[in-house]
Write a protein that binds this DNA or RNA. Structure first.
Length: 882
RNA sequence: GGUCGCAUAGCUCAGUUGGUUAGAGUGCCUGCCUCACAUGCAGGAGGUCCCUGGUUCGAGCCCAGGUGCGACCACCA
């Protein structure tokens, strides 16, 4: 048969097979094909993105599912694409412009957007090319982009519908504002630093307007006092009761501001009095509304104090903070400064400290949308895996807040709302209007764009052609599974569920598998700034895609974070090589005409080892299938690993050698057929995990291949008729016996070349021993196996194999007596210790009385056996000592 | 402040419904280039299953409390 190189070289195979798969169009989902479907949409990576380890895990899992279901006969759609990533992409192009000494304003909006598109065409979407290296079996013909024509159409349709339904509105609110990106952010985009950041709590005295002592407030952002329009105290706080309704003097600004009573104020915090700055704090804004306090904006969008800030105008917010504190101190109004952990929010894109800022923005009213999304999780229509994420989802959904969707950017879907200056009419439109529908005047479009997630939340159906009623939607929507990381449950998963119900009336997916977060060896999250994320493409170059895939799947348990070190890939690489060599071995022995016997050999002609491995094969098929059905990817991988390495390679290949090298043609034929079947099935089982290697080997097997590629070959089903308990028991005994003999040999330091003789007291029947005799000789390097009758050697058996009998290893004068004594003493000590434990257990009446009979009986039998063994060992030792 | 997760061999982690002697990979020690594979083969050492208490005949597993680490949420100025 074919000659294969000694070491598996992924480089020469991966590209070749990937091209072959694409050429054969095997990843294409066909709307016109009947039968069950399975669909999954990729979490669209940012178009600016570069593959990192998180993507590797996420996409490998998706590919495992896609390939498994494809082989299992489903019509599979794995929808690929990228996200336009508003801020991220705009940042990239702005940086590029900066190198040329330009800002986006130099170009103007239209030209800038043009420039971004140009960047996207030239440099964007690298990550999709990288996914192909990984082996991702996406339907690439369908690649989507959140700003392509169809998706933009969907976005606009959704906006207009929700606008008309009153679910989208514009309002003055305190939002999170990034002074660097110069845009509003959603709550989820303003991230809190863990445990707060180092700051101070400044205690500032506000004298009473009538010159009295006034009160002291505590603040972490003293510069905002420039915009204070009130002071609030708790209504029940007796310390300040006399000041409620009065005024105090705002230091530095010399304005009188009222003292109001509001239950929001916690009397136990700070001084129990709080400055109210409605334009720069969400709580203060609410209090301002309740008490009719003016909102005074003191800051430019860039974070620079504006004219309202008096002498501080023109200073950056942090400079202003220092100046304000210094001036207060100089005036003796700073009572104290204490170090304090301040909760700070930062822009999720550029990490600039975000400013709570009063501005006019667009919002989605979320509460009505949350109703069906809550129901879905409660009634089981939607499953999160692992389930414990339900709590996170529910908590967010139940406390949902309106979603700020407008962004002051240029790159994105422009808000389809027009204003007519002539008649003050505001309207949303599906197509760009040239005139105001009310007065015929010239309307102008809102300058803002929509949050990137406003297109992402439509992804499962917009990618399939919604709002048109397409064949794709009818066939493949809703999808079955979504695989994503838990950190975007709010950003994406929850919102997709809401959009799905609102716009299509259905939950967009059944199962959401939340994959592990990949951390580095020290448990840190992998990130670009830490430089601790190995470039997966380098890993693939070095170890191969299959090795990386298998490693990552193996170490990622359900719902647990995973630590990844580059070295770990050796695990997968070694496994790939092991499989490769097993195939080499097989192909040395297989003949082209074995194809005729390629499938399921007839049991009658099979040897014990053949029947055993075919039975074990059924067990691993069962295990792999049930693990995959439950999204226990690592269990499936480890079942395959244990079977292939621990059973096929360690035992079956060795057990098959006597037949393969022997003269018995029937046995040889049976072994070849078995080998072929096992490899064929194993490669198919393995294909979702190691697509390239499995294809490479499968293609050279001498079998009648039902399909041109393993990608669409049937995933193995359990064949119950191949289960063989008898063979499993017998080979189990064989393995025990061989293990025991090897152990003795190694411990007594007997060279591999030294012949041993083994005597077996065949309590289990002489026939049992004879069936495995030849195997023992080969595997344990034994010269002779003797069958004992009633006559047994006087000494202790070397081991007892359940169901077989006592095994005596005769050492024939090659033994060092001291070594034997040492071994026996060790065994004796072990037996004594164990017996002590069992006796203690049996002496307790509660155990004997209450435990199930079989458990007690087992313990009793054990005690008896141990006692016998102890006696024998002791006797044997006495002889040896004498 | 709230919610959730984790703690098992030197390291990284499995351990499904409570039941013989708690496993794997890797590292370490010993012996092997044995005709598929040294990216390998055979054998071995190594564990107070975080602590305390409880339930049970029996707990790595269930319950309570504690300690340590981590994640998420929150309107403590």
């Amino acid at each position: 048969m074919a000659e294969l190189p000694k070491t598996y070289d992924p480089k020469t195979t991966e590209q070749r097979w990937y091209d072959f798969w694409l050429a054969g169009n095997y990843f294409h989902a066909d709307e016109t094909r009947d039968g069950p479907t399975y669909s999954i949409v990729i979490p669209p990576p940012n178009v600016t993105g570069v593959l990192h380890m998180g993507h590797i895990l996420n996409n490998t899992l998706q590919d495992v599912l896609a390939r498994f279901h494809r082989m299992d006969g489903k019509n599979v759609l794995w929808m690929p694409g990228t996200d336009h990533a508003g801020i991220a992409t705009q940042n990239v192009v702005e940086k590029q412009l900066a190198k040329e000494g330009l800002s986006r304003h130099d170009l103007g909006r239209e030209q800038f957007v043009e420039r971004v598109w140009q960047w996207k065409e030239e440099k964007g979407g690298v990550i999709l090319k990288q996914l192909k290296r990984l082996g991702a079996s996406c339907d690439w013909e369908r690649e989507r982009f959140t700003m392509d024509e169809g998706l933009s159409h969907a976005v606009r349709e959704v906006f207009v519908r929700l606008y008309e339904k009153g679910l989208i509105y514009r309002g003055q609110r305190i939002i999170h504002w990034c002074p660097r990106c110069l845009t509003a952010l959603a709550d989820e985009e303003a991230v809190t630093t863990e445990g707060g950041e180092n700051g101070s709590l400044w205690h500032i005295r506000y004298p009473a307007a009538d010159g009295g002592p006034g009160l002291t407030v505590a603040t972490t952002r003293p510069e905002t006092m420039l915009g204070d329009t009130g002071i609030a105290v708790n209504p029940d706080d007796e310390r300040y009761a006399h000041l409620i309704g009065k005024s105090v003097m705002l230091p530095l600004m010399q304005r009188q501001i009222p003292v109001v009573a509001d239950a929001l104020v916690d009397p136990s915090f700070g001084t129990g009095a709080v400055k109210v700055t409605p334009a720069h704090d969400a709580n203060d804004f609410e209090m301002g509304q309740r008490h009719g306090l003016e909102s005074m904006c003191i800051m430019e969008p860039s974070g620079v104090i504006n004219a309202a800030g008096g002498i501080y105008a023109g200073l950056d917010r942090f400079e202003a903070r220092q100046r304000v504190v210094a001036d207060l101190e100089a005036q003796g109004l700073l009572d104290k400064t204490e170090p304090y952990r301040v909760p700070v929010r930062r822009c999720y894109r550029c990490e600039t400290v975000v400013e709570p800022y009063l501005s006019l923005q667009w919002f989605v009213k979320m509460q009505p949308l949350a109703v069906p999304a809550l129901k879905a999780i409660n009634d089981g229509t939607l499953r999160l895996i692992p389930e414990r994420w339900n709590g996170v989802y529910l908590h967010w959904m139940e406390n949902i807040r309106d979603w700020c969707i407008s962004r002051q950017l240029w790159w994105g879907h422009r808000i389809p709302v027009w204003y007519c200056d002539a008649c003050s009419h505001e309207f949303a439109a599906r197509t760009d209007p040239s005139t105001c529908p009310q007065c015929g005047g010239a309307p102008r479009q809102d300058p803002d764009v929509l949050d990137t997630w406003f297109s992402s939340w439509l992804w499962p159906f917009s990618t399939m052609g919604w709002p048109q009623d397409t064949a794709t939607l009818r066939r493949f929507y809703p999808t079955q599974t979504l695989v994503t990381a838990a950190d975007i449950i709010f950003f994406w998963v929850a919102r997709m569920v809401m959009a799905g119900y609102e716009l299509t009336g259905e939950c967009p997916f059944q199962d959401v598998y939340l994959n592990s977060i990949v951390r580095d060896g020290q448990g840190r999250k992998m990130s670009k700034s830490l430089g601790n994320s190995p470039d997966p493409i380098d890993v693939i170059d070095q170890y191969g895609a299959d090795a990386l895939r298998f490693t990552v799947v193996s170490i990622a348990p359900v719902g647990q974070d995973v630590r990844f070190d580059l070295d770990k890939t050796e695990f997968g690489r070694n496994f790939a090589n092991k499989i490769w060599n097993a195939a080499r071995f097989a192909l040395m022995h297989l003949q082209a005409d074995d194809a005729a016997h390629g499938d399921t050999p007839a049991p009658a002609v099979l040897g014990l080892a053949d029947r055993w491995i075919l039975s074990r094969l059924q067990a691993v098929i069962e295990e792999t299938r049930s693990a995959l059905a439950a999204y226990r990817f690592n269990d499936a991988a480890s079942a395959l690993y244990r079977f292939i390495w621990g059973e096929v390679c360690d035992w079956y290949l060795e057990l098959s050698k006597p037949a393969l090298y022997g003269a018995d043609e029937a046995a040889k034929q049976a072994a070849r057929a078995t080998l072929t079947t096992v490899l064929d099935h194993t490669m198919r089982l393995l294909h979702p995990f190691m697509p390239f290697l499995s294809e490479e080997i499968w293609q050279v097997l001498p079998i009648a291949r039902p399909t041109a590629t393993i990608c669409i070959a049937p995933y193995p089903h359990v064949d119950a008729t191949q289960r063989d308990a008898d063979a499993e028991a017998r080979v189990g005994q064989l393995i025990d016996t061989v293990g025991a003999i090897r152990n003795i040999r190694a411990e007594l330091g007997i060279a591999p070349t030294t012949g041993l003789a083994v005597s077996i007291a065949a309590d289990g029947g002489a026939e049992r021993v004879r069936a495995i005799e030849d195997f023992i000789k080969v595997l344990a390097k034994v010269q002779a196996v003797e069958l004992l009758g009633a006559e047994r050697p006087s000494g202790e058996p070397s081991t007892v194999v359940p169901g077989l009998g006592e095994v005596f290893v005769s050492l024939r004068g090659v033994v060092d007596p001291a070594a034997v004594r040492e071994r026996l003493e060790k065994d004796l000590a072990k037996a004594e210790k164990e017996l002590k434990g069992v006796d203690a257990k049996l002496s307790r009446s509660d155990f004997v009385d209450k435990a199930p009979v079989d458990v007690v009986d087992k313990e009793r039998a054990k005690a008896t056996a141990l006692r016998e063994r102890q006696a024998k060992l002791g006797k044997h030792l006495d002889v040896l000592r004498a």
